[in-house]
Write a protein that binds this DNA or RNA. Sequence first.
DNA 1: CGATAATGATACGGCCCCGTAACGATCCGG
DNA 2: CCGGATCGTTACGGGGCCGTATCATTATCG
Lengths: 117, 117
Amino acid sequence: MVLEIKPTQALRLWREVHLDLVRDTQSDLSVRQTAILLTIYLELPPHTVRGLAARLGVTKPVITRALDSMGKLGLVSRKRDEFDKRNVVIQRTVAGALAVEHLADLVTARARELGPA
Amino acid sequence: MVLEIKPTQALRLWREVHLDLVRDTQSDLSVRQTAILLTIYLELPPHTVRGLAARLGVTKPVITRALDSMGKLGLVSRKRDEFDKRNVVIQRTVAGALAVEHLADLVTARARELGPA
DNA sequence: CGATAATGATACGGCCCCGTAACGATCCGG
DNA sequence: CCGGATCGTTACGGGGCCGTATCATTATCG
């Protein structure tokens, strides 16, 4: 069940999906924001600011600001941890799940279109 | 030779590569710049500003500015078209080819690591 | 020729993001 | 109880990218 993909296929897949993303005016997330979004939706909760910062190898303000902008878009939400009020727990939203699903559709669709070599 | 990839695999692949890109301080290209770079290196020359703008569905200044910054990084170069001096021909560089190859390595490596489902 | 069209570059105002440094709030150990 | 550690946020200065409008240069055609 290993995914065998050749370099040429990988590049074409990457290009086609990126062209889709550029044309799709709605979702203009940066590379960092995309990495954060996918980490939140693919890895097991709970997610915290410092945890994501360590996971991505960036500083905490980067996470805070990304959560700010993604929160405005409704892709994530935040809640104080009641047991340790210093912590903030990052939560998933319906809109965020839809955005992730949309991205999955994009990638799988473009992968299907790839010819040999 | 169709590339069969499941939604879960697509998302994990996308996330792993994006994490690599975020950690790799060197290459912080935007989504638009990545789309431009891959179009230049995967599609047949010649490439022009207006051609890329139409291909990506963006305005010409977007291409001009992207070529400026990518030119500073040595990823592409520009040359006046001698037959029609209004045109600018975008050319590939060694550094650009290496960057594209590096991206291909990243994607194929992460794809190989993907487990089933 | 001269007027018009086309190409790429530039100016402008605005917005977002970055890294460093500091901050308030909260927890914890002595 | 209180000083230090931890957590997330904010302030600051700087830089990049955006879209619109405009520009200089070059080509085309009557």
